[in-house]
Structures are given as C-alpha cells and as structure tokens.
Write a protein that binds this DNA or RNA. Sequence first.
DNA 1: TGCTTTATATGATGATCATCATATTATCAC
DNA 2: GTGATAATATGATGATCATCATATAAAGCA
Lengths: 197, 197
Amino acid sequence: MRYDAEHRGKTREKILREAASAIRARGPDGVGVAALMKQAGLTHGGFYAHFASKDDLVAQAIGVMFDDVRGRFDHETAERDPAAALDAYVGFYLSRRHRDSRERGCPIAALSTDMARLEPVSRERFGRGIAALTGWLAGALARLGVADADAAASAMLSEMVGALSLSRAVADPAQSDAILAHAAAAIRNRFGLGGGA
Amino acid sequence: MRYDAEHRGKTREKILREAASAIRARGPDGVGVAALMKQAGLTHGGFYAHFASKDDLVAQAIGVMFDDVRGRFDHETAERDPAAALDAYVGFYLSRRHRDSRERGCPIAALSTDMARLEPVSRERFGRGIAALTGWLAGALARLGVADADAAASAMLSEMVGALSLSRAVADPAQSDAILAHAAAAIRNRFGLGGGA
DNA sequence: TGCTTTATATGATGATCATCATATTATCAC
DNA sequence: GTGATAATATGATGATCATCATATAAAGCA
C-alpha cells in the first residue's frame, strides 16, 4: 500500500520512540520485536523494512534517548546562573520522580550495566552521550569557578548515575530514598549549591 | 546413584558458584539453565533437584556474590589504619583489573540496573548487601573523623559503583580509564587519602 | 478506471528458553 | 553380592525469540 511520502518515516519514528521507552524500562533483552511492534500498532513482520536487525534498532534507540538527555538538561538549566542551574539539574536527577520513571529517564542510569554486554556500535553511542553530558556539567562547574572542572564533572556524573541506579535496585523504599538524599546532599555541599553549607 | 552424603551439597555449591560468575558476566537474562549446568559438568535436567526455579537460583547466587564482597573488603582493609584501608579499597574498586573482571567483581556494579527488573526476593538481598558495604565504609570514615559518616559512605559507594559501571559501558579505553581516575582522585582528595591534598 | 508501487501483514523457520516426567545407574546398607 | 535408594541423565513440552519469504492492499499515476 502506497501511503504519502512521510508515512514510512513516521512509522519508523514511532517504532523508535516505543523502543526507547521499552528498552529503558525492561532492558535490551527484555524487549521482543513482536511485542514492540504490537505496542506501536503494527505487526511483527514489518519490522525489517525499517531496521536491519534488533541490534540496529537498539543502537538507534540509544541515540533517541540521548536526544532526550540534551532536552532535559537544557530545560533544567536554561536562563539560570551556574549555581542555580546545577542545583536544578541535581535536584531533577536525584528525585523520586526520576527514579520512578525509568522509561523516560536518563539512559545512563537505566542501562549502564547492560551496555557492557552490547555491540560496540551501541557502546560508542553511549560513550559519546556520557562525554556530552559530562561536558555540559563541566561547563557549569567551570563557570562556578571549580578547578579541574572536567574531572569534577566526571566524578559528579558517576555519583549521580550510581545513586540513581542503586535507588532503583533496592526493594526498601526508605533505603532507596536515603541513597538519593545522601548523594544529593554530598554534591550540593561540595559545590555550595542550594544555599547549602 | 547414591553418592556419599556430601555429594549433593557439593554439586549445589558448584552450580551456585558457576551461576555467580555467569550472572555477573552476562546478566540474569543472559544465563540459561542448560548452559549453566553444562558449565558445571552436569546435564540440564538435574537442575530442579537443587533449585525451585531459575529465580530461586538467581536470588541464592546473589547471596554468594555478597559473601565475596565481604571477603574482598576484609582482604583490602585488614591490619591497616582507617586512611590506608580506605585508600586500598578505593584503589582496588576503581582499578582496571576490577573493571576487566566482571565475573569476579562487585555485584553491585555488575548488576545494579538489572536488579530493578528482578523479583523482590533478589532485590531485598541486594539491598542488604548494599547496606552492609555502606556500613563497613562508614565505619572506616568514622574512624577517620568524617562527620555524618553514614551519609558520606552512601554517597561514596554511589560514586564508586557509578564510575565502575560507566567505565565498563563505554567503548573507548581512554574514556574508560579517565572515568575511573577522576572518581578515584575525587574521593581521595575529599578524604585526604593516599597522600593526596 | 485500472495499473504500478511499496508499506505493512501473514505465516513459517529454526533456535533457545524454563520446566518437568521419567529413566538410568552408582553407591550404601545388608 | 544383592537390593533399595537417591542423584543425575534423557528426552519432551510448550513458549518465546529473531529473522525472513511471501502475500495483501492502499494510494498515487496514467
């Protein structure tokens, strides 16, 4: 059936967006092609008209996820001075809301341990995404006057990613909340954010 | 065939140890019962004489992994003063050697994002393991004179786990090394370890 | 109106998965 | 040495998986 010229592209977008959500929620292994296509309102056979393989889909979906990361960073930091921007981003990142919405949240915290088992093409995309976010954080830290902002940003990102991952891993809600709160307090205290000491 | 009384227990141990390695290396979804039993020198059918289900195996294997964590912590910190003990543990945790041996390394960094999708029984075990390691780190920090040692230990563990996970996720070796080095330097600098400033 | 094109659907393939019923056989007790 | 016992093996079940060959049908074009 010959649809208008954009139809194919729109379908592709829809599959990719569903994949970006499903992969973050259930992991690359937890997402089947058939279930994904059904979620997108299609049947499973048409998948290979859009993607060369499931690995290809995963790699491209990771790209989509990091587009969201950029959008979120800009949204939290736009029109704020460096201290307020960092404070807002840390607050967002280490919030219960972020913890409880894996399918829309940061792919770094959602997929870090899965990445080690994925194809190089996906891992390279992931590495570029990490480098980009580190760079934006480093820019804010540099404007704050932090020495060696690149190194500080890398360590800060590790801390935020680790805390969010651990908060999602444990079963006890109180323990989970505490992990987030301790990391947020440590970061704010270190850089004098949010009126902290 | 009726073996001596310990045979069943030994076989069980062997399956569990293989599982603890394979799950850390390939993830819970990446380990099949048949392949695991073959690795242990057995056939797949006998599995259910030892474990109620694969979920049961995973939960018990997580327990085995955390026994290793305790052993490693003791090994690194025994007979050292608090600063040297912490420095040694941070050095071990954020080493390339640790990064490159997922199957024997810390389960927290190997499985954190997988845990969010596992059964509650496994997540509870994981949470207890995290709490235990946090407690040991807090003890060392308290002896160092760090205020609010529990909170500091929790944030420090998040940072180490995040850095190790990210170092394994990226494809570029230089980027991977830098992630480890930045986190190690940040922690050592913060607590005055290893002759750092 | 009818032909061509092509996006999607149908259905099949072979692999792998967890699980379990049943068969085998090695060792211990006698 | 013989028989009972229990640990492991064999083989099957049904589900799900990625992948692909082929069929269908809708929309633009003539």
